Lab assay of single mutants.
Amino acid sequence: MAEQVALSRTQVCGILREELFQGDAFHQSDTHIFIIMGASGDLAKKKIYPTIWWLFRDGLLPENTFIVGYARSRLTVADIRKQSEPFFKATPEEKLKLEDFFARNSYVAGQYDDAASYQRLNSHMNALHLGSQANRLFYLALPPTVYEAVTKNIHESCMSQIGWNRIIVEKPFGRDLQSSDRLSNHISSLFREDQIYRIDHYLGKEMVQNLMVLRFANRIFGPIWNRDNIACVILTFKEPFGTEGRGGYFDEFGIIRDVMQNHLLQMLCLVAMEKPASTNSDDVRDEKVKVLKCISEVQANNVVLGQYVGNPDGEGEATKGYLDDPTVPRGSTTATFAAVVLYVENERWDGVPFILRCGKALNERKAEVRLQFHDVAGDIFHQQCKRNELVIRVQPNEAVYTKMMTKKPGMFFNPEESELDLTYGNRYKNVKLPDAYERLILDVFCGSQMHFVRSDELREAWRIFTPLLHQIELEKPKPIPYIYGSRGPTEADELMKRVGFQYEGTYKWVNP
């Protein structure tokens, strides 16, 4: 592979701008107003304001973009700056750019259920340069409990009458099928589907988006991507930290609602779906819905739930269990780990287990898709061969690698495990991989909904998990304890083995 010439960040961002501006969906010269509902909250200060700053800094926003914060707290732009700027990672050389960014910011205080507050917000936006005809993007960085009041008031008082209007809704989209349907029906009564952007930030990850290209742009994968060759698929999300004093919020939802029903299920769809007619948003989402419709409700015998306990040999936070978090209700049975087996009941995947695993306070930070292939028929190497695996590593250190057998150097035919490896950090030294939120917010500006969740996708996802969630809430089974920093409950490994996964433990990928 030829040595790549190092590029400056300015040059890299210039390439990104060229890609972005050559499309006809990006209205570079139009006025846009980006409204952050819930501007005083954690999500706004840690993710949304920093993301908008990065896009502005790199010249990736339309030229005439204004940012308006809205929340109940009586704040000023200076207050917003004070709480969000520490997350910007701005350099001293960017000081003038930073001043320009905050000059485009404003803030309006108001209630979430008060019509007069929204009329005041609308008047404020109209007073901005060309504000009355601007395109408006409303980001709901809010708890779902206020979605209905907020969307109703936005629709009645704050819509642009000339430009387009788009609304970005953060997960969780309800707690179960019934609450999700209620919320979807409410929002759909106010906005068209092409105006609604239900954001799952995992769909903005580079390697998640790469799944489609790997599958449908490489001839070698087509013939082997089926039940005849693939023994099982494992989708993993692991965090090495616990709730760390923020367990009160987590306890309301648990690990299945927080990660599995959305992030992991979306990745499953991209692995299992048929080739779409095109890369058009609805063509892709149509195929994802077909996959979900082929999955039956989760069966309790295919589920393992766990909850982390303190590690007596650990240090600091590792010595504390979930129930030691003062914000967690006493005696909570909320799971911090889950392993679930699903089956896609169609011709391509009949009988292939899709194993979804996620948890907190585990032994490493990792998100990946792992396809394990069947054993080689007619073994001539005296059971020395391990199964081939194709691994798409989402985070950290984005990579695609194939675990395969090669001859060990020497005189004899002794096979050993090795890999074919594409590590993004080595291959793409001159490429700026956008943060997931950067990519998705740019998608909203461009009107691309491919990486957002459609209402029928959402409904099918909740259909699969709601009976299990209701059973857990009714019966309150005690989750299996696992030690902070471990791989999780051993019962999860036993479940995976029972459905056909072979864990060798003899080879570990190392970032080159």
Score class of each variant (00 low, 15 high):
residue 1 M to I: 10
residue 1 M to K: 00
residue 6 A to T: 15
residue 6 A to R: 15
residue 7 L to W: 06
residue 8 S to V: 06
residue 9 R to V: 14
residue 12 V to T: 15
residue 12 V to Q: 14
residue 12 V to L: 15
residue 14 G to N: 15
residue 14 G to Y: 13
residue 15 I to V: 10
residue 15 I to Q: 07
residue 17 R to M: 15
residue 18 E to A: 12
residue 19 E to P: 14
residue 20 L to R: 14
residue 20 L to E: 07
residue 20 L to H: 15
residue 20 L to P: 13
residue 21 F to R: 13
residue 21 F to W: 07
residue 22 Q to S: 06
residue 24 D to N: 13
residue 24 D to Q: 03
residue 24 D to E: 13
residue 25 A to G: 09
residue 25 A to H: 15
residue 25 A to M: 15
residue 27 H to W: 12
residue 27 H to M: 04
residue 29 S to E: 14
residue 30 D to G: 05
residue 31 T to M: 13
residue 32 H to C: 07
residue 32 H to Q: 11
residue 33 I to N: 10
residue 33 I to S: 09
residue 34 F to T: 12
residue 34 F to A: 09
residue 35 I to C: 05
residue 38 G to R: 00
residue 39 A to Y: 04
residue 40 S to L: 02
residue 41 G to W: 00
residue 43 L to N: 02
residue 43 L to E: 02
residue 45 K to R: 14
residue 47 K to H: 09
residue 49 Y to V: 05
residue 49 Y to M: 14
residue 49 Y to H: 03
residue 51 T to K: 07
residue 52 I to A: 14
residue 52 I to R: 00
residue 52 I to G: 02
residue 54 W to P: 08
residue 55 L to F: 03
residue 55 L to W: 05
residue 55 L to A: 11
residue 56 F to E: 02
residue 57 R to N: 12
residue 58 D to T: 12
residue 60 L to S: 04
residue 60 L to R: 08
residue 60 L to I: 10
residue 61 L to K: 03
residue 61 L to E: 00
residue 61 L to R: 00
residue 62 P to T: 07
residue 64 N to D: 11
residue 64 N to R: 15
residue 64 N to M: 06
residue 65 T to M: 09
residue 66 F to G: 04
residue 67 I to C: 10
residue 70 Y to I: 10
residue 71 A to T: 05
residue 72 R to A: 02
residue 73 S to G: 12
residue 73 S to C: 06
residue 73 S to T: 10
residue 74 R to V: 15
residue 75 L to H: 12
residue 76 T to Y: 06
residue 76 T to W: 07
residue 78 A to K: 15
residue 79 D to T: 12
residue 81 R to W: 08
residue 82 K to G: 14
residue 83 Q to V: 11
residue 86 P to F: 08
residue 86 P to Q: 05
residue 87 F to I: 09
residue 88 F to N: 14
residue 88 F to G: 08
residue 88 F to V: 05
residue 89 K to F: 08
residue 91 T to K: 15
residue 91 T to G: 07
residue 92 P to G: 08
residue 94 E to K: 05
residue 94 E to I: 02
residue 95 K to D: 05
residue 96 L to T: 11
residue 96 L to I: 07
residue 96 L to D: 12
residue 97 K to I: 14
residue 99 E to Q: 07
residue 101 F to I: 02
residue 102 F to V: 04
residue 103 A to G: 09
residue 104 R to W: 06
residue 104 R to M: 14
residue 105 N to A: 09
residue 106 S to T: 14
residue 109 A to W: 09
residue 109 A to H: 14
residue 110 G to A: 07
residue 110 G to C: 07
residue 110 G to I: 00
residue 110 G to E: 06
residue 111 Q to M: 09
residue 113 D to Q: 14
residue 115 A to M: 13
residue 116 A to E: 06
residue 117 S to Q: 05
residue 117 S to T: 11
residue 117 S to M: 14
residue 118 Y to N: 05
residue 119 Q to W: 11
residue 121 L to C: 11
residue 122 N to E: 09
residue 122 N to F: 08
residue 123 S to E: 15
residue 124 H to R: 12
residue 125 M to G: 07
residue 126 N to S: 08
residue 126 N to C: 12
residue 126 N to T: 11
residue 126 N to V: 08
residue 127 A to M: 10
residue 128 L to M: 11
residue 129 H to Q: 08
residue 130 L to V: 12
residue 131 G to C: 11
residue 135 N to H: 11
residue 135 N to M: 11
residue 136 R to T: 09
residue 136 R to I: 07
residue 137 L to E: 03
residue 138 F to N: 01
residue 138 F to P: 02
residue 142 L to G: 05
residue 143 P to H: 05
residue 144 P to K: 02
residue 145 T to P: 06
residue 147 Y to I: 03
residue 147 Y to T: 03
residue 147 Y to Q: 03
residue 148 E to W: 09
residue 148 E to Q: 15
residue 148 E to H: 13
residue 149 A to H: 14
residue 149 A to E: 08
residue 150 V to W: 01
residue 151 T to A: 14
residue 151 T to N: 06
residue 152 K to S: 12
residue 155 H to K: 15
residue 161 Q to T: 14
residue 162 I to N: 10
residue 164 W to C: 06
residue 164 W to Y: 15
residue 166 R to Q: 03
residue 168 I to K: 05
residue 170 E to S: 03
residue 170 E to M: 01
residue 171 K to L: 00
residue 172 P to K: 01
residue 172 P to M: 03
residue 175 R to M: 15
residue 177 L to C: 05
residue 179 S to V: 09
residue 179 S to K: 04
residue 180 S to C: 07
residue 180 S to P: 05
residue 180 S to R: 01
residue 181 D to Q: 14
residue 181 D to L: 13
residue 181 D to N: 09
residue 184 S to I: 10
residue 184 S to K: 04
residue 185 N to A: 12
residue 185 N to L: 08
residue 186 H to V: 07
residue 186 H to R: 14
residue 187 I to W: 08
residue 187 I to E: 02
residue 189 S to C: 15
residue 190 L to V: 07
residue 191 F to H: 03
residue 191 F to N: 03
residue 191 F to G: 01
residue 191 F to V: 07
residue 192 R to P: 11
residue 194 D to N: 15
residue 194 D to S: 12
residue 194 D to W: 11
residue 194 D to K: 13
residue 195 Q to D: 06
residue 196 I to Y: 02
residue 197 Y to C: 01
residue 199 I to R: 02
residue 201 H to Y: 02
residue 202 Y to Q: 03
residue 203 L to S: 01
residue 205 K to V: 03
residue 207 M to W: 03
residue 207 M to G: 05
residue 208 V to E: 01
residue 208 V to P: 05
residue 209 Q to A: 15
residue 211 L to M: 13
residue 212 M to R: 00
residue 213 V to C: 10
residue 213 V to E: 06
residue 213 V to G: 08
residue 214 L to V: 08
residue 215 R to D: 02
residue 215 R to S: 00
residue 217 A to H: 05
residue 217 A to T: 10
residue 217 A to P: 03
residue 218 N to G: 04
residue 222 G to W: 14
residue 223 P to S: 08
residue 224 I to N: 08
residue 225 W to A: 00
residue 226 N to H: 07
residue 227 R to K: 13
residue 228 D to M: 10
residue 229 N to M: 06
residue 229 N to R: 00
residue 230 I to S: 01
residue 230 I to R: 00
residue 231 A to K: 15
residue 232 C to H: 06
residue 233 V to S: 01
residue 233 V to G: 09
residue 237 F to A: 07
residue 239 E to K: 00
residue 239 E to Y: 02
residue 240 P to V: 10
residue 240 P to G: 12
residue 242 G to I: 04
residue 242 G to C: 05
residue 244 E to R: 13
residue 244 E to A: 11
residue 244 E to V: 07
residue 244 E to N: 07
residue 245 G to R: 05
residue 245 G to E: 10
residue 245 G to D: 12
residue 246 R to Q: 07
residue 246 R to C: 00
residue 247 G to P: 05
residue 247 G to R: 11
residue 249 Y to P: 03
residue 250 F to T: 01
residue 250 F to Y: 12
residue 251 D to S: 12
residue 251 D to F: 00
residue 251 D to V: 02
residue 253 F to M: 08
residue 254 G to D: 03
residue 256 I to A: 09
residue 257 R to I: 03
residue 257 R to G: 05
